[in-house]
Computed example of a mutant assay.
Amino acid sequence: MKKISLFMLVGFLALVIAACGNSNEDNGAKKDEKLEAIDAKLDVPEKGEKGEPVSLSTKVTKGDENVDDAGEVKYEIWKNGHKDESEMIEAKHEKGGLYKAEKTFQEDGLYTVQVHVTARDMHTMPKTEIAIGEVGAGEHEEAGEDHHHGDHESTVSIHLMKPDSITAGEEAEMKVHVENKEAALEDARVRFEIYQDGQEKHEWVDLTPDEAGKYSGSYTFPEKGSYNVQVHVTKGEEIHEHSMETVDVQ
């Protein structure tokens, strides 16, 4: 009996050790999979014509997998020198991780197109330029200076991540992702300035740093309506940027 019991005990321990080994391997594989970053390949023509639609597309992948379930894909477009007047366009998923939108430019000039992609708890925002119609030599020179000397248009990107729906009287959690020169901007002061058109009093909310380049905060909107949420980012004397977005509260 003792020999049989000892044999059974040894066998049981062997099974437990093997199970633990498999569990650790599975956890390691899952961890490696989670750490793999998403990739967004932005495809925009180099040139376009005023008054004619231009196709914008982005292929989103994670390793060899097409990402069909991105939480958000938006194109931010502005004429160089006018970042404060940027426009956001929602992209639609077609198939195989391809997200598309169209934009008709009303003026000649050099424009920046930046795609904001949020998927699998990660965020990326590559950008490129497109020349519409006749572009003066001065505009090309200014663009070149922006890329080499770090003008705010080409170095700092601010992206607000908010819930799909916000209800008046309920706390809304929001995050901001900030990059400088295509790298996460850490140790910055990030604040919300929240107000409605015609409202004299503006509410200010300080955000808390999370992981690299991400800041989080919350705000309870008092009533239904459309609110302006302006994100202010400052760091030392060199960086003082802001970005505006409209939020609809139900």
Score class of each variant (00 low, 15 high):
residue 14 A to Q: 05
residue 27 N to Y: 15
residue 27 N to D: 14
residue 28 G to Y: 09
residue 29 A to L: 12
residue 33 E to Y: 15
residue 35 L to S: 13
residue 35 L to I: 03
residue 36 E to Q: 15
residue 37 A to R: 12
residue 39 D to M: 12
residue 40 A to C: 07
residue 40 A to D: 01
residue 42 L to G: 06
residue 43 D to H: 12
residue 44 V to Y: 06
residue 44 V to P: 02
residue 45 P to D: 07
residue 47 K to H: 12
residue 53 P to D: 06
residue 58 T to L: 05
residue 65 E to G: 04
residue 67 V to Q: 04
residue 67 V to M: 03
residue 71 G to P: 08
residue 73 V to K: 03
residue 76 E to D: 10
residue 79 K to W: 00
residue 85 E to W: 08
residue 87 E to N: 08
residue 87 E to M: 10
residue 87 E to P: 03
residue 89 I to K: 05
residue 90 E to V: 08
residue 95 K to I: 00
residue 103 K to N: 10
residue 103 K to V: 10
residue 110 L to T: 02
residue 114 Q to L: 12
residue 116 H to R: 10
residue 131 A to T: 06
residue 132 I to H: 04
residue 133 G to F: 11
residue 134 E to H: 13
residue 140 H to F: 15
residue 141 E to I: 14
residue 150 G to K: 02
residue 151 D to T: 15
residue 153 E to W: 07
residue 157 S to P: 00
residue 162 K to W: 04
residue 164 D to R: 09
residue 164 D to V: 08
residue 172 A to D: 04
residue 179 E to D: 09
residue 179 E to F: 00
residue 185 L to S: 01
residue 188 A to T: 00
residue 191 R to S: 11
residue 193 E to S: 11
residue 195 Y to D: 07
residue 199 Q to L: 08
residue 201 K to P: 04
residue 203 E to C: 03
residue 204 W to V: 12
residue 208 T to K: 12
residue 216 S to A: 14
residue 217 G to R: 01
residue 219 Y to T: 03
residue 227 Y to A: 06
residue 228 N to Y: 07
residue 228 N to K: 10
residue 229 V to T: 07
residue 236 G to Q: 05
residue 240 H to K: 15
residue 242 H to Y: 12
residue 245 E to N: 13
residue 247 V to H: 04
